[in-house]
Simulated assay, not measured.
Amino acid sequence: MLQDNRSAVRKILLITLGLNLLVMVLKAVVGLVTGSLSLQADALHSVTDSANNILGLIANRFASPHPDRRHPYGHQKFEAVGALGIAAFLGIACFEILQGAISRIFQGISPVAISVPELSILLLVLGINIFVAFYERRVGKQVNSPILLADAQHTMSDVWITITVLAGLIGIWQANTLNLPQLQWLDVVLAFPVALLVFRSGWKVLQENLPWLVDEMAIAPEAIYDLVMTVPGVVNCHEIASRGVLGRQVFIEMHAIVNAVDVESAHAITEEIENRLTERFSPVRILIHVEPPDYKSDRISFTSDAN
C-alpha cells in the first residue's frame, strides 16, 4: 500500500533549509574575511544546498504517490526529477570551483589570514553539516524519499569538503605561525579535490535516479518467474516486464497461462499471484494478461534483438 509521506519530507526539508542557510552565511563571512578561495568555494557549494532544499520543496509539492486522471501511475517521478536538479546544481558548483582555482593560479596567490575564532566557527559548521546529513538520511530511509536521500548525499559531500578545507586552513594557520609562506598554496590546491568530491556526489545522485525516469528494469524477470511458478494452477508466465524502484513503487506486467476451466478459477489464481508478488516486492502494482492453457511461449521477458 502506498503511503503519502510528503508532509514528513516537507518538514525535514524546511529544517535543513534553515540550517543550510546558516552554514552558507557562516562560510561566506569567514571566507571573505580570511580571503580563502577553498572556503569561498565551499560556501558556493552550500548555496547549492539551500537551492536544493527549495527545489526539493517544489518537487515534494507535486510528488503525490496516489494516481489521478491525468497521472494514472502517480506523481512520484517528480521527486526523481528534483533529485536530477540536485545533480545539475552540483555540476554547476564543480565548474565554479575549478574556474576560481585556475583563475587564482594564473593571477597569483593571495595571502590567507586565519585565526582560532574563525577555525572554531568552521568546526561549528562541520557539526551542523554532519547532523543534517545523518538526520536526512535516516528519515529518507524511513519514508523512502529519493529527494531526502539525494540531499543527504549532497550534504555528506559537504561534510568531507568542509573537513578538507578545514585541514588546509589549519595548515595555513600553522604556516603563518611558522613563517612558511609556501603553504599558502594549500588553499588553491585543496580547491581541486573539493571540486572532485562535488562532482562525485552529483554523479551518484544521477546514477540513483536516472533509471527510474527511463523505466529501467526494477526486478529481474527470472526472479518474478520463479515466484509466480510456485502458485498452484500456473502453467507458465512470460513477457514479464517491471519498472520503478524497489521499495518505492514498482509496476509489473506479465502474461500468464493458468489451468482454469472458468473465469472465477482464473481470477483466483491471478489473485494469488498478486498476493505473493505484493508480499515480496511491496509497494507494487501488477497487471496480468491471462491466456488459455494450450498457449505456448518460452520467452520469459523482452530482449534487445531488433525485430
Rank of each mutant, 00 (worst) to 15 (best):
69 R>M: 05
170 I>F: 13
11 K>V: 07
249 Q>H: 15
197 L>A: 10
50 S>A: 15
270 T>F: 01
65 P>T: 05
221 P>Y: 11
138 R>M: 08
179 N>W: 01
164 T>E: 00
34 T>F: 08
307 N>T: 12
79 E>T: 03
133 A>N: 09
11 K>E: 15
278 T>S: 15
234 V>E: 02
243 R>F: 03
95 F>D: 03
185 W>S: 10
60 N>K: 03
158 D>A: 11
286 I>F: 06
42 D>I: 05
296 K>C: 04
215 D>P: 00
130 I>Y: 11
244 G>Q: 06
73 Y>I: 05
19 L>M: 13
130 I>D: 03
80 A>L: 00
68 D>C: 08
48 T>K: 01
237 C>H: 08
250 V>M: 06
33 V>A: 13
253 E>Q: 15
76 Q>E: 14
138 R>D: 09
214 V>G: 04
39 L>R: 09
290 V>H: 04
38 S>P: 01
164 T>Q: 01
292 P>Y: 09
214 V>E: 02
172 I>G: 08
243 R>T: 13
172 I>A: 07
154 H>K: 07
248 R>A: 14
134 F>L: 14
73 Y>K: 11
190 L>N: 03
119 L>H: 09
49 D>Q: 05
306 A>K: 14
123 L>P: 00
225 Y>N: 13
3 Q>I: 12
250 V>K: 07
35 G>Q: 02
244 G>R: 07
155 T>D: 04
288 I>K: 07
256 A>S: 12
307 N>M: 06
5 N>C: 09
305 D>Y: 10
148 L>T: 12
203 W>N: 10
138 R>Q: 11
142 Q>E: 15
129 N>L: 14
